[in-house]
């Protein structure tokens, strides 16, 4: 059905073009012109800073100055001990592995939770007003800042926090659990709490576009609930899952605030390393690190995009 509308629309546009006196060549020129503001913004605020970062990453620096140059020392410093130090991992590798570990775990947990919430909203809540209400409720945590939502966990999870007091009060443990705070656990908990909505929204959006008739058809054809889920809902919700995954992966890769606060600053993250370098005016080193991070994120995103053609799906 969508196809017929599509071709219909295209045909009417094709008919309109001669009427407006536009020839193909002119149309293309005008299209470029119309896209120009967007291009300018893009060039000024994205390409230019990126180019500067790349250039600076090859510069020389002292403790109080940076000098234009073309040296590879910043990159060499970054990978210092990465090869001759094997089998012990160098700082950079270790930091990236730790960041990737968080990326993967947070992605997996937010996916499960995000998918379940979206599924519930899309298929179990029947009326549209109710769906909208439930959806708005999901966004309530976003009314406060990220830092506040993070810090709110600290009195809960601390050594003398509510959770430990409750556990000891119930006699489950007699010693406070130390791993609740300033640990991998608390970092993952906070990241999941902060970013699950980024998973819910696109998946919910994809699910809302699934024609209910398809699910009925699956049931009529004798598919079990599980089969409907794996063969109908998940493939059709794939663009949403992918977009949500891209959000979560890119955010967690660059995060240093959450890992810093919830990890008691004992856990390294690429962002924190860059921040420390900037604080000590080691801009070229920070730039080299940023370029590496960018490459890592782009690799992750391109791997995700292999799985789905976003332009086609949207």
């Amino acid at each position: 059905m969508t196809d017929t509308i599509d071709t219909g629309a295209r045909r009417s546009i094709r008919r309109a073009i001669p009427r407006l006196g536009l020839r193909r060549g002119q149309g293309a020129g005008e299209g470029l012109l119309l896209a120009l503001p967007m291009w300018l913004v893009f060039a000024l605020f994205f390409l230019l800073p990126l180019a500067v970062t790349l250039v600076v990453s090859f510069w020389e620096f002292t403790q109080y100055s940076i000098e234009p140059a073309f040296i590879l020392r910043n990159y060499a410093d970054l990978f210092d001990g990465c090869i001759d130090g094997l089998p012990y991992l160098c700082t950079t590798l270790k930091t990236y592995l730790s960041t990737l570990k968080f990326c993967f775990l947070v992605w997996a947990v937010t996916l499960v939770i995000g998918f379940s919430v979206a599924y519930f909203l899309a298929f179990h809540v029947r009326s549209l007003p109710m769906q909208v209400t439930c959806f708005l409720i999901c966004t309530i945590p976003f009314w406060t800042s990220i830092v506040i939502r993070m810090i709110a966990w600290i009195p809960l999870l601390g050594r003398n926090g509510l959770v430990n007091q409750a556990l000891m009060g119930m006699g489950v443990t007699d010693q406070p659990l130390e791993w609740l705070l300033y640990s991998d656990f608390s970092v993952i908990l906070a990241l999941v709490h902060l970013y699950t909505l980024f998973m819910v929204v696109p998946i919910f959006n994809s699910m809302m576009r699934i024609d209910p008739a398809l699910i009925e058809a699956a049931r009529d054809s004798g598919a079990s609930g599980r089969q409907t889920l794996t063969n109908v809902v998940i493939p059709l919700a794939r663009p949403g899952i992918l977009i949500g995954s891209i959000f979560v992966v890119t955010i967690v890769m660059g995060d240093f605030l959450t890992i810093g606060i919830m990890g008691g600053q004992q856990i390294a993250s690429v962002g924190k390393t860059i921040q420390t370098e900037i604080q000590y005016l080691q801009f070229p080193l920070a730039a080299a690190n940023a370029v590496l991070l960018l490459i890592a994120v782009m690799l992750a995103i391109s791997a995700l995009l292999r799985m789905v053609d976003i332009r086609k799906e949207l």
Binding site: D77, D80, T91, K94, T95, S98, Q265, Q266, I267, A268, K272, T273, T276
Partner: peptide, 8 residues
């Protein structure tokens, strides 16, 4: 650099 190593 060494301090970053300690943090990591």
């Amino acid at each position: 650099r060494k301090w970053n190593e300690f943090i990591a």
